[in-house]
């Protein structure tokens, strides 16, 4: 996968994991099954995850442990999902979220 994945580490070993396909804004990407969605996006070079409600500013993740809500996106139609703690699964559809998101009536 991309160069942001750590290939060799002097202390840590990262076990082999299953590769799955997912979609970001309709385009297909690959990541490891079970890793956080935000991590898979980051490794694929995507770091703008949503736009702020008032000033339309680009936002990415910050804490990576489900505390700050900076990483919320729409996953399979579910808005305001914290992508830093949502495990990636085959066929997931991930979308950027504008502001507070929109629910179809």
């Amino acid at each position: 996968m991309t160069s942001l994945r750590i290939e060799h580490h002097p202390v840590l070993n990262f076990p082999e994991r299953k590769i799955v396909n997912f979609y970001f804004e309709g385009k297909q990407y690959q990541g490891y099954e079970g890793e956080p969605v935000a991590a898979a996006l980051h490794a694929a070079g995507i770091r703008t995850l949503r736009r702020s409600p008032q000033k339309d500013r680009a936002r990415g993740f910050f804490c990576a442990i489900g505390r700050c809500s900076s990483c919320i996106m729409e996953i399979d139609g579910q808005i305001n999902t914290m992508t830093c703690i949502t495990p990636l699964a085959e066929g997931m559809h991930v979308k950027m979220q504008k502001g507070h998101g929109h629910i179809e009536p």
Binding site: I6, S52, G60, F61, F62, C63, A64, C84
Partner: peptide
Amino acid sequence: DLPGIYGAGGVQTLMNVHGIKPG
């Protein structure tokens, strides 16, 4: 608030738990 500004804990989680460099 720009994407690419992370907490030290976030960087560690990404790097040491998930095996991905922050940049």
